[in-house]
């Protein structure tokens, strides 16, 4: 969501913290991932301007930043809904009903996996194993896990999300 910011603004926003990150590694390239993470936390997603800003701050080719941003699935390269629901659909969750929950979410939110509701409040994603199979089926939202999901639990969760702006959730 850096579309309202200029390259220079992004750079000066991030410069100090990127500098700090660089001290942890012997090469500037290593700082690409943490810098993308930082930018995403700051702006909600990453985009061309972010790659360029990071490339310039680290003095590495811009393509290196883009390669990394596009390889890893946790970097959001487009604007996400205020609440990003990542429902695990991998085997252990599937075996405990994740597919039905996904159906339910699709109906409730009127989106396909990977899409954002038209009001921009929810993004729904089907994700791979979240490493919390003991509470399958499980989803992640605002960096938190919600497990042992049922349709009722999901509805309650959606209601809580809808009632609260994203900033207060994380």
């Amino acid at each position: 969501m850096s579309d309202t910011r200029s390259l220079d603004e992004i750079k000066s926003d991030l410069a100090e913290r990127v500098e700090q990150i660089m001290t942890r590694y012997p090469t500037a390239r290593s700082a690409i991932m943490p810098s993308l993470d930082l930018a995403q936390q700051e702006y909600g997603s990453v985009d061309e301007l972010t790659y360029r800003a990071i490339a310039e701050l680290l003095d590495v080719p811009e393509i290196w930043v883009f390669e990394v941003a596009s390889f890893y699935s946790l970097y959001d390269r487009s604007k996400m809904g205020r609440h990003h629901i990542r429902l695990c659909t991998n085997l252990p969750c599937m075996l405990r009903g994740a597919e039905a929950l996904m159906q339910h979410l699709q109906q409730r939110l009127e989106v396909e996996p990977g899409e954002t509701t038209s009001d921009g409040s929810f993004t729904l994603s089907a994700v791979e194993c979240l490493g919390a199979c003991e509470v399958a089926p499980v989803l992640m939202a605002h960096a938190q896990y919600h497990g042992d999901l049922t349709v009722e639990k999901l509805d309650a969760l959606l209601a809580t999300f809808a009632a609260q702006p994203a900033e207060e959730m994380s």
Binding site: M33, L74, Y75, E128
Partner: peptide, 10 residues
């Protein structure tokens, strides 16, 4: 010890 955070790649 530095933590390096992964980003969703098995």
């Amino acid at each position: 010890i530095h933590i390096h955070k992964g980003a969703g790649a098995y």
